[in-house]
Design a protein around this nucleic acid. Sequence first.
DNA 1: AAATAATTTAATCATTTGATTAATTTTAAC
DNA 2: GTTAAAATTAATCAAATGATTAAATTATTT
Lengths: 210, 210
Amino acid sequence: MAKKKEQVKEKPLSAELRIKEAARKVFTQKGYAAARTRDIAEEAGMNLALLNYYYRSKEKLFELVMLESIKEFFLGLTGILNNPDTGLGEKLELLADSYISMLIREPNFPLFMLSELQANPDKLIELTGTKDFMNKSVFFQQMAAHLKKNKMNFSPMHVVMNMIGLTVFPFIGKPMIKLMSGMKDKEFLQLMEERRKLIPVWMKTMFKIN
Amino acid sequence: MAKKKEQVKEKPLSAELRIKEAARKVFTQKGYAAARTRDIAEEAGMNLALLNYYYRSKEKLFELVMLESIKEFFLGLTGILNNPDTGLGEKLELLADSYISMLIREPNFPLFMLSELQANPDKLIELTGTKDFMNKSVFFQQMAAHLKKNKMNFSPMHVVMNMIGLTVFPFIGKPMIKLMSGMKDKEFLQLMEERRKLIPVWMKTMFKIN
DNA sequence: AAATAATTTAATCATTTGATTAATTTTAAC
DNA sequence: GTTAAAATTAATCAAATGATTAAATTATTT
């Protein structure tokens, strides 16, 4: 049953990877429960049995895809957060810029990730291995010092939540925002581009940075 | 098959309503696709067939529950937004207070609503009937005037997005926030209570209100 | 109290869906 | 070129799941 996998690794041709990327797309779009293995096979243009041949099961495939995406997400995040050579303002600018770009490229990713995290928080904790990396981050330390110096007596986690909220929420809430405002996709995208610059300005104003 | 429904309306006893509320709970927790009719029946402590007896199908039941929740949500929102007797600052305070309370009570509602809106945007548009009510709201007008006066050249929709993002995001992102910070439920709740007061302050600072 | 209607239940159906199998084709090794 | 391994396919299985039915029970009406 489990024939290859460990032995062959240097030659990932088409089928195997195409299934994985199709899975990423379908899972991200519909979520785990609503995604059918047949959808994934069709999206990849492959026979359904290949999914099980290469990845054993829907769940295994999901875990793989999910883990990869989350790892990448956290890596990008910590890369900016832990740079000791940038100040708070610059970090906020880099975060906004990098995440707006990512979100324009992959607008469905956050809702997918948050939904699955909600549906199965424990699994993701063991899957990622990452835990409370935020508290130890350079950003967190810098922000804690800044808040103390400026007599703002609240947790730096508020700052983190605000930053993510301002950046990510519009993408998660896009259908609702379009529903409330009657906006079209093009206008929406333009607003998101504006936020690339505006979010750091707002954040700095809010927390008296610079 | 469809025996009652139109005739009897004044005596909604146990069964029918219990199923609906069980459905709300299960749908909200797991989403449409992952929610099984058997889960709902079990949650309501009722026979599975009653679900179809009273509500015809899983989908009909879902639409009903969803529509009710969204209607209520938008009603609360527009109630505050369209009050001509309150200023911008006060509106922000009322919004934060009312929504933090709602979110502590129903922490799963936003992710549910946004997920389903994403999965099926068109259906919800026809289901709610509401469309671009934001642009015409008193709040929107007040904010447009304020932004213009203070030389902030961007759409009031940014303000709306920020407000919702700051308020709602932490609840949507709770599992991720806990994962990043190692926070426990109690601490999380305390932070949310702090935000009740902090969010209006931040918003006013950000947009130079008062 | 009898009759009718409404509610509830247990059993079952039909479809969907994740997974497997056995056969076939393609690729690689010798 | 033959053989063995890997990849691929079509067909099928088994479990899950939404839905229905027919019978039983309870409530309501007359």
